[in-house]
Design a protein around this nucleic acid. Structure first.
Lengths: 132, 132
DNA sequence: TCTTGACCTTCCAGTTACTGGAGGCCTTAT
DNA sequence: ATAAGGCCTCCAGTAACTGGAAGGTCAAGA
């Protein structure tokens, strides 16, 4: 399979696949013309990577997960630990974003949004937060 | 004020302030010794930047907000539009993260997390999603 | 056979918003 | 006089790609 085929079948952009080779996540062989030659296993790996990335795992997480996936003797607890750490990070991001959203939507509600220059959004940003 | 003083009073790292100067967000004058000399206005601007960044506005958002802030004639609707666009991005990030969290925590629940090799997390990642 | 267009290759640079470090000058206190 | 600490610039690195230039390859149609 050429890179265009794996791209179509895995859903990953061609550039991304080349990048994944560069950082050692996949190791396709080369044909006599210099083209990368991918096998079904590579395709499988790339699809795995695409799904793990879509779940927000970092590349290094993915590398670890792939290693665990290919290690017949690993315990499921190893995988669970990585997943749990990642879950905690996601939860904390959600928490932070919710706080931002609440503050921001509060400010937006208070802003008239008309032609007048008064704007609570800017006023809030320009004033140090009050400490109680 | 030297950069260390504005850093302490604005809460921004020294490196960050230099970077903000580099990209033109602040323009401190220079003393004869080459040191940056910041005024109260610069401090105010930097604090503004710190708060806007904490709300997740991008640097370019901040640049626009600062320009609006310094423009006496701008309408509050201009600011409100930027804030609303940003709010929509935040909402969508929260949505995506929640979807990730739900999928991931579901997988984690199903994983025994013991010494055995079977792991639903990896199985899911290695299997194309079912289409109904 | 020639040409066209779609693929493929490598390499370089840019993205975001900083952060770390090296090497060196300046200031202040002892 | 010297030592500590603050300040300066410049270079490089981070995460995970993405875009583009310059050029080789392949398959199909005229």
């Amino acid at each position: 399979m050429n890179i265009g085929d794996v791209s179509a079948r895995s859903g990953l952009p061609v550039k991304t696949i080349r990048y994944y080779e560069e950082i050692g996540l996949v190791k396709p062989t080369r044909g006599t013309n210099g083209y990368r030659a991918f096998g079904e296993k590579d395709l499988h790996k790339l699809a795995f990577l695409g799904r793990a990335r879509a779940l927000g795992f970092t590349i290094e997480d993915c590398r670890a997960l792939l290693a665990l996936y290919e290690d017949q003797s690993r315990a499921s607890s190893d995988v669970k630990r990585i997943a749990n750490e990642h879950l905690a990070q996601i939860e904390s991001k959600i928490f932070d974003l919710k706080a931002m959203r609440d503050t921001l939507s509060h400010l937006i509600d208070e802003c008239a949004g008309d032609h007048r220059p008064d704007c609570p959004i800017l006023e809030n940003l320009s004033t140090p937060p009050l400490r109680h």
